[in-house]
Amino acid sequence: MDRRMLLRLTAIGSASAVLSATGCSEENRPVSTPEPTGGVTRTVHPYGEDPSQYGALYLPSAEPRGLVVVIHGGFWRPEYSAEALGAPLAAALAGQGWAAWNLEYRRVGDRSGGGGGAPATFDDVAAGIDLLAELDVDTTTVVTLGHSAGGHLAAWAAARGRHGWSERVPVTHVISQAGVLDLRAADAAGLGNGAVRAFLGHPPTTADARFDPAQQLPLDVPIWCVHGEADANVPLSQSTDYVERARAAGATAELVEMSGDHFVVIDPASDAWARQLEILDTIA
């Protein structure tokens, strides 16, 4: 069994219950879900009417050190979900004393979990982060942590206020996990078998700057780009080139190159994950 399947199976038992709860809620009220282990609690909060418009808030037993917004990847496609890919990280973060907001969003296509693309997916991520202003959680420190396509959205979210989206809850730090940070380069390389074109609805150009982190430099907050050197899904150059250009533009950006593949950065048992916890230790 490969790592992708293992991570998807970790939370598959709870996915149906959570999606059902969010789909049935009509009053934007939290829906209680089974309590995770180790004193961590979880509640689900819809930010829209679509079943994919929700976030799951994981809280540690003590006062949180800060808040991490977990944004899952999967080339923006509906077969990849927050419960399958983000929940293990959110639980691990809460176990380390962080509040974690495992954010779901509409992905590309007409299947269950779809309805997204540009700009709908961006609208969802902005609304999902802003909902935190209405919850009982401190938003002084807000770190977006995103993998692959989620890394793209994590970096984008930190600049969203400059490009026409609401920013009630500003992002203060970004950790990109093998992020798709340059949409034009990703499309030219054919990543995800045309995933960028499917997401935008056309080949990316300079007219898509409001969607593309590589065209939004310099970012106003620090960003760490954590990437496996043997990544065959999103090449390391997506992070190395972004960091080089970010620094040249005057931004605070750091490349964190790790041994391993595309999924090592979201494996809570890996050295790459331990390194990310160390980065969070420098924040709060």
Rank of each mutant, 00 (worst) to 15 (best):
R3P: 00
R4Q: 10
R4V: 10
L6E: 14
L7A: 07
A11E: 14
A21D: 11
C24T: 14
V31F: 14
T33C: 10
P36H: 12
V40P: 13
R42C: 13
H45Q: 15
P46N: 13
Y54N: 07
G55E: 02
G74V: 00
R77N: 11
E79N: 10
E83V: 02
L85K: 08
A90Q: 06
L93V: 01
Q96C: 07
L103P: 06
E104A: 11
R106L: 04
V108I: 14
D110G: 12
G116Y: 02
P119Q: 06
V125T: 08
D130R: 02
A133N: 12
E134W: 07
L135I: 05
V142S: 12
V143S: 15
L145W: 14
G146Q: 12
A149Y: 02
G161N: 02
V169D: 05
P170A: 05
V174A: 08
V174E: 05
I175M: 05
A178P: 07
G179H: 01
R184V: 07
A186W: 06
L191Q: 10
G194A: 11
A195V: 08
V196N: 09
P204V: 10
P204M: 11
R210M: 11
Q215I: 01
L217C: 04
P218F: 02
D220W: 02
C225I: 02
G228R: 00
Q238F: 02
S239Y: 04
D241H: 11
V243F: 01
R245A: 15
E254D: 12
L277G: 08
